[in-house]
Design a binder for these strands. Structure first.
Length: 279
DNA sequence: ATGCCGAAAATATTTCGA
């Protein structure tokens, strides 16, 4: 079973590339971020023609998350428990939720497609929102694990955090001046390890980037950053047999600025006919 | 060539992104 995450930066601008890649790479489940549309605007037909069902959560032209899967999806959940909201210029606890989190269960695995807030700048209220969002996500994940006997769960998506200096190849992103690398953001990211989640890709791909800015020849110069992750509970990570970062998807005509990240899982599904089912 | 930013709403300019 092959599971992937990809910030597509507008699915309507990228549908051909995404569907071609799904088929070429034999992907079973894809978590998408920044679909930048409402569900009615999502190019569902192109995915269905390739054998994938779509579940999308989008409120407007900003943000938006979705799943494409050729294995049945169950227990669909938009937003996580306690998820903070945000509205520029507004304050207080009743700000509207943004379309940044979507959960589904596939083949017994709990999967989340997540688009963590950017933060914008060190002085911006958006950074406070980002840190709160990550803390509440951690709390919701911990609560799920407690209620589900530490079952298999993965948080997949664009975390908008560069965990180590080795993950930062962009010379304009500087510790002390930029978001994504601040001690507070790195601590928020690291806190997922405290509730038992591990980076399921790093053991297979120790270095390498997942995003290169469109500007300033960042990709030809390989001045990217690593911000897209698949964090899994131990029971999820135990079934991971391999991982890949699809750097070639940054090339060619009209690429997203992010590339797909894939994990291979040793998990039995209904569609498997090459593996004996033993009960 | 991997090459100097792109998408969407609005309809020219602004917002957002990391």
């Amino acid at each position: 079973m092959r599971v992937a995450t990809w910030n597509v930066n507008s699915i309507r601008a990228r549908v051909g590339r995404v569907v071609d890649w799904l088929e070429r790479e034999d992907i079973d489940v894809l978590a998408m971020q920044e679909i930048k549309c409402k569900p009615v605007q999502f190019p569902t037909e192109a995915f269905e023609a390739a054998g994938y069902e779509i579940i999308a959560h989008g409120l407007n032209q900003w943000n938006g998350v979705a799943f494409a899967s050729r294995i049945p999806m169950e227990d669909v959940e938009t937003n996580f428990a306690g998820q903070p909201g945000f509205l520029k210029g507004a304050e207080g606890p009743d700000q509207p939720l943004e379309a940044r989190a979507l959960g589904v269960t596939v083949a017994g695995l709990r999967l989340w497609s997540l688009y963590i807030p950017n933060g914008r700048s060190l002085e911006d209220p958006h950074l406070i929102y980002k840190l709160d969002w990550l803390a509440k996500l951690r709390d919701a994940t911990q609560a799920w694990s407690l209620a589900n006997n530490n079952g298999p769960i993965a948080l997949m998506g664009d975390f908008n955090v560069i965990p180590t200096d080795e993950d930062n190849g962009d010379p304009t992103i500087v510790v002390g001046q930029s978001t994504h690398v601040s001690p507070e953001e790195r601590a928020a990211f690291a806190s997922f390890a405290d509730i038992g989640l591990v980076d399921t890709v790093r053991p297979f791909i120790p270095t390498g980037y997942t995003y290169w800015d469109y500007k300033q020849l960042r990709f030809p110069r390989n001045e990217g950053v690593r911000i897209d992750f698949i964090l899994g509970s131990q029971s999820f990570a135990d079934s991971v047999t391999g991982a890949t970062i699809h750097r070639n998807e940054r090339k060619g005509e009209a690429p997203s600025d992010h590339v797909p990240v894939v994990v291979d899982l040793d998990v039995a599904t209904e569609d498997d006919d090459d593996r004996p089912m033993i009960f």
